[in-house]
Design a protein around this nucleic acid. Structure first.
Ligand SMILES: [Mn+2]
Ligand SMILES: [Mn+2]
Ligand SMILES: [Zn+2]
Ligand SMILES: [Zn+2]
Lengths: 142, 142
DNA sequence: CACAAGGATGAGAATTGTTCTCATTCCATC
DNA sequence: GATGGAATGAGAACAATTCTCATCCTTGTG
């Protein structure tokens, strides 16, 4: 039994703490975006985040949602996923992990880092250093 | 000593054969796109392909380049890569392999499938079947 | 507790990669 | 050489994202 229009949200206090730990000023809108984004492990588009923030009764603009997500991404509060050419998804789980992507439904499912062994990693090209590894396992509904 | 404006191209006959093997009618424009795309292992955007086809003196439109790349992609002649939210890259190497992506320069480098061991693959979610695995190793210029 | 000063916000325009429309052109087949 | 269906292309349309810049907040200061 869920109250319509009242999705689960991360508590403001927890969001404020997360932002301040990364040196991000905890403004009204950033906290509201964070309450939606950090509610649970999930993968949301900018549009979905905007919808949900508006649904919780807050007032935010599209520009601020994008500003905020880009800032969160720079500060390591969110991971940006590009799985197709359409839109990006924002992933509150920043620890290393991977994804199943259902090409038919668009669904994204987390794969814990330790559920997938990457052996014999090739050395990065000369003059470069590893930053992060993304594994996307594309699946079809069968 | 390279002749300016005359980049290396795949021979028309080879391209025609590739297309016909996949049941794709070998029209003038499709063959020209193929000559650019199948010239060597590489990763080009639609715009780069258009530029190069025009540079070889052929007449093609943007719409046809996109039509052709989407058709090639459906027929398994090219693999589409989404590495950031900006544009897609088209990869003539359709056999399984992976990529280094230099986030500073935008450079994409192939990693042969056998240079990277993926052990203990998790089972696909119920009701789905593996389609393909993409590993992208993001690196920074250091 | 006013009060700057700089940072954040937002309405809407701009940008850009990609798709769509549909009239025209091409091509395989007869 | 005709012809019917597929392919092409100019340009409009779309959609995700960014930009502009006037207005609004925050935060520290007096
Ligand atoms: Mn971006
Ligand atoms: Mn596409
Ligand atoms: Zn995830
Ligand atoms: Zn490749």
């Amino acid at each position: 039994m869920s109250t319509p229009g009242t999705a689960q949200l991360a508590p403001r206090a927890r969001v404020v703490e997360l932002l301040e730990r990364r040196g991000v000023t905890a403004t009204q809108q950033r906290v509201e975006v964070g309450q939606v984004l950090f509610a649970c492990p999930q993968h949301l588009s900018a549009d979905q985040i905007l919808e949900r923030v508006l649904a919780m009764g807050a007032r935010v603009s599209k520009a601020t949602v994008y500003n905020t997500l880009n800032l969160f991404s720079e500060r390591g509060l969110v991971r940006t996923l590009s799985i197709d050419g359409d839109r990006q998804f924002y992933d509150p789980t920043t620890a290393p992990h991977h994804h199943f992507y259902n090409v038919d439904t668009g669904e994204l499912i987390d794969i814990p880092a330790d559920a997938l062994a990457l052996a014999s990693l090739p050395a990065p090209p000369a003059g470069t250093a590893h930053e992060r590894i993304d594994v996307i396992i594309r699946v079809r509904s069968s």
